[in-house]
Write a protein that binds this DNA or RNA. Structure first.
Lengths: 164, 164
DNA sequence: TATTGTTATACTCTATAACTATA
DNA sequence: TATAGTTATAGAGTATAACAATA
């Protein structure tokens, strides 16, 4: 998907050619300054880039998210994973299934409430998480390369206020 | 991490109760400070909220985006729409089809390149866009209510750097 | 030959409801 | 009765390839 590599384009005659890249011209649209739109576009680009990076580990971002939550000391239940990730229970089942099949996590019945399943990482799950975390860090670095470290901290702080 | 409106919570007995809402506990996960993750979560929430608002007009955000680009003076072709929205040509076809069926836009063959179709709004298309724009503004207001006006401007500026 | 739009198709993601086992 | 997880299924979103008309 060579969306990038826009080679220098001869400006041509402005009066006859309405061209430009097209991208620049359309910045005047109302939607182009719509924060929701910008968020959607940023997530699309970031998500596909991260998925591309994680493909090396046969993971997708959504699996990584689950793995990352599981690799804390918090011992989350499936319900809690779903709540945090804004995914419904059936989606969590599928994600945990695939992580369990490859031996990265296992389900433990919560002794305090035998309906709940706590998802815990295996040793290789921890390893996998470390590798994946390195890749997503790298991906974030690429996607946010137009931002200074200070701007990234700002962005993170602002998004945290919006996301939760 | 004092994220947002986290109401004072009685810490309870740490040794027996691992509970809390679940959301707060899991903030310690690596993924919770991952900008990509925060963007994804913000877009999920915002997108569904905006879709809910736009349902009143029988529109979705993706249709609104197209309509908004078309309602500029730039007379974009389908290809340009796809480029700007990061959607592939076949998706644009479907979106323009549905907008055309309801009489909001029509296709004009570009006289300079008869392969291209310029998508232009009808009068009722302009009306629809105005109504939809008001709703998305309202939606943005709701979703970003935890941010001050200054923070919103910051967020917009940062996202514009990332999104394009 | 290459590109724009179109159609067809398949695959992923998302949403919903019904079922089970516990509470 | 209500809740956590599971299963099944359908719908929306996304990606790809082949084709017609035009360049």
């Amino acid at each position: 998907m060579p969306t990038t590599a826009t080679p220098e384009k001869t400006p041509a005659d402005e009066s006859t050619a309405p061209s430009a890249t097209g991208i620049e011209r359309l910045q005047s649209a109302r939607v182009a300054s719509d924060i929701q739109f910008l968020i959607a576009r940023a997530r699309g680009r970031g998500n596909s880039h991260a998925n591309l990076m994680l493909a090396e580990l046969d993971l997708k971002v959504r699996h990584f998210s689950v793995l990352s939550l599981v690799c804390t000391e918090e011992r989350p239940t499936q319900r809690e994973l779903g709540e945090f990730l804004d995914l419904d229970p059936s989606q969590i089942v599928a994600l945990v299934d695939s992580l369990e099949e490859r031996g990265a996590v296992r389900r433990e019945t919560d002794p305090r409430d035998r309906r709940s399943k706590i998802v815990v990482p295996t040793e290789s799950g921890h390893d996998l998480h470390e590798q994946a975390a390195a890749l997503t860090r790298e991906s974030e670095e690429t996607v946010l390369q137009t931002l200074s470290p200070r701007e990234r901290r700002q962005l993170r702080a602002l998004l945290q206020k919006v996301a939760f």
